[in-house]
Design a protein around this nucleic acid. Structure first.
Length: 573
RNA sequence: GGCGUUAUAGCUCAGUUGGUUAGAGCGAACGACUCAUAAUCGUUAGGUCCCUGGUUCAAGUCCAGGUAACGCCA
């Protein structure tokens, strides 16, 4: 039995994610996790909320709540929505957990001992009114270049000129508006990634089966310009993991916290600790997933993320792991996605543009979204969501091809033989040919799923559903019935067995519909098919079933128009 | 400004290491069927594979230059 450790990029805490975020990490990770479990493999599928950093503090302030309270609430909201989309995390953790505090401080200590941390003095803007240092982009002022009065400390959005906060005229805090600012000298820790450049380079070079998107981004960061740059890992904030060297104080770093990018990926590991704790397990139980010296040798680790996260996962996080000198499990396969666009532009959290996860679930059940998003996953390039395309896919693939198949076979059987699987003659040459064809197709489907070729998997699955309709159409049991009821009974029996097969194969994509079909066929346990001839003979004469309700309702033109209008602007709150 | 990705039928996309008449789904037209969510199945029609030049017996596929869209970095 293979063992799969699977992580999805962890969503940031400040609000509900949109469908573009979902399809880029959590959803394909869930597809893979469900598939591997269905194949009988051992899976640990982890995700968490990324809770530290300035945006979380500001969002909390805006909500009028202490940041810890805000994060706890938003974590609960995101967890609930994840359940709504049937994301089957073994644990949905929090980067603010006790485990992550300890582990992040541990890594920092190890890196310091290895000589991979340097101290750098920097000048930073301090706001007296806000009682805090301000990141460049939270300082506003008039652009010295074009006179735009809302230029940010890092760049003027009007003329695109790069700026330093000190360049701004009449600089003020973007948080409070206060102009009582002061430039102070402060010390920060840097991770000396550059010292690990050759090791990282060799490691990336060895990953010949990774998507081009992944390796090209990593190589660019490794070789561009002066090569891999060192990166600050501390910030002057209150909210975060206090800077410590392992369990000890770090002189000169009092009152500082680790930069969010440093502690967020470590949460992948800490989350396993949270999972163990939540299930009454001990350290050895999660070490066997993460420590190659403690049983994780045979683990295959796969990460899922959008392309914006690739540099952290291919370079910075591996630098942390390698630099620690400890035998942590490194990622084996990194599946990255491009962006999903919305009606001609980008989905945008900050602008509230597009469809957000909670809104999507208000319109339609999870399976509808899962199918469209996965069958159109932005694997090779950015892809585009349009309502017409969504409506077409849902109506044709789900309602007409799969849903209607289940409906026609169960209703036909009920009308001729009652709600029991009929017996009739044994399968003949036509049925054997279908079984042989399906065996080949299912093998192809499994190959694509193993390779995490999301779109191609969806295509193969759909083609398998079509086989069911083709079969019924060609043998036409409604005609056969008139002259040869025994043969019609056999054809119907195979049709019902096909519905069982489709339910099991479709479960990773459509967990709810799968459960519904299995329920109506009164099948207790979904077992992945090995031998199609055996699998398709499981439902035998006399097995009771019920005709299910409509599996997938069609999206009407009216709904489509309404939703299109409703989601044309930006989100209100 | 530097770099990256993409450019194939009306639409969404496949096209392995260059190799016979470039594929699929949707949409369209026509036909078959009538069990079913007016569902299904079949047939057909649609392409100077962004442009120019090059390498080769052979280029959608490799090389050079250009154009366009998107993205990343500064």
């Amino acid at each position: 039995m293979a063992r799969h450790l699977i992580t999805s990029a962890i969503p940031y805490i400040n609000g509900i994610k949109h469908l573009g975020n979902l399809v880029g990490s959590q959803l394909p990770a869930d597809l893979f996790a469900r598939y591997q479990r269905a194949r009988g493999n051992e899976v640990l599928f982890l995700c968490a909320t990324d809770e530290h950093g300035t945006p979380a503090e500001l969002a909390a302030a805006k909500a009028g709540k202490p940041v810890a309270e805000y994060c706890a609430e938003m974590h609960a909201v995101q967890a609930e929505i994840a359940r709504g989309f049937r994301l089957s995390f073994d644990h949905f953790g929090r980067s603010s957990s006790r485990q992550n505090h300890a582990l992040t401080q541990h890594f920092a200590g190890r890196l310091a001992e290895a000589g991979l941390i340097s101290e750098v003095s920097e000048k930073q803007v301090y706001s007296h009114a806000d009682a805090r240092f301000l990141p460049d982009r939270y300082i506003e002022g008039t652009c010295p270049n074009c006179g735009y009065d809302k230029a940010r400390g890092d760049q003027c959005e009007n003329c695109t000129k790069q700026l330093d906060p000190t360049d701004l005229i009449d600089a003020r805090s973007a948080i409070s508006g206060s102009t009582d600012l002061e430039v102070r000298e402060t010390k920060h820790l840097y991770l000396r990634q550059s010292a690990l450049k050759d090791e990282l380079d060799a490691w990336i070079e060895s990953k010949t089966d990774w998507p081009v998107l992944t390796t090209s981004i990593a190589k660019k960061w490794l070789h561009d310009g002066d090569g891999l740059r060192d990166r600050g890992i501390t910030r002057d904030l209150d909210w975060g993991i206090p800077v410590r060297k392992g369990t000890e104080e770090w002189p000169g770093m009092e009152g500082k916290v680790f930069y969010v990018w440093f502690d967020a990926p470590i949460e992948y590991i800490a989350c396993a600790g949270e999972w163990a704790e939540a299930h009454g397990l001990d350290d050895t139980d999660w070490h066997r997933w993460w420590r190659t010296d403690k049983g994780a040798d045979d683990v295959r680790y796969t990460q899922f993320m959008g392309k914006d996260n690739v540099p952290f996962h291919t370079l910075s996080f591996p630098a942390t792991l390698i630099g620690s000198g400890e035998p942590w499990k490194m990622v084996d396969h990194l599946k990255s996605f491009n962006y999903l666009n919305y009606d001609g532009g980008q989905f945008s959290t900050s602008q509230g543009r597009g469809i957000f996860m909670d809104q999507a679930l208000e319109l339609l059940p999870a399976d509808y979204w899962r199918w469209w998003l996965l069958s159109h996953a932005p694997e090779s390039s950015d892809s585009e969501f349009t309502w017409e395309n969504f409506q077409g896919s849902v109506n044709k693939d789900l309602a007409d091809v799969l849903g209607n198949f289940v409906s026609r076979i169960t209703k036909f059987c009920r009308s001729k033989f009652g709600e029991f699987v009929p017996g009739g003659s044994p399968y003949g040459p036509t049925e054997d040919a279908l079984i042989a064809d399906l065996s080949v197709r299912i093998e192809r489907y499994a190959t694509q799923m193993d390779a995490m070729e999301v779109r191609k998997s969806a295509q193969e699955l759909r083609a398998i559903w079509v086989c069911g309709n083709e079969y019924l159409q060609s043998v036409a049991p409604w005609t056969t019935y008139k002259t040869d009821p025994d043969t019609a009974a056999m054809q119907t029996r195979l049709g019902l067995n096909l519905a069982h097969l489709f339910a099991v194969l479709s479960a990773p994509f459509l967990p709810d519909a799968s459960t519904k079909i299995l329920g109506s066929l009164k099948i207790k346990e979904a077992i992945w098919p090995r031998d199609q001839s055996v699998f398709l003979s499981q439902l035998t004469k006399g097995h009771a079933f019920e005709v299910p309700d409509v599996l997938f309702a069609k999206v009407t033109d009216e709904q489509c128009e309404e939703w299109k209008a409703r989601f044309s602007g930006v989100r209100e709150n």
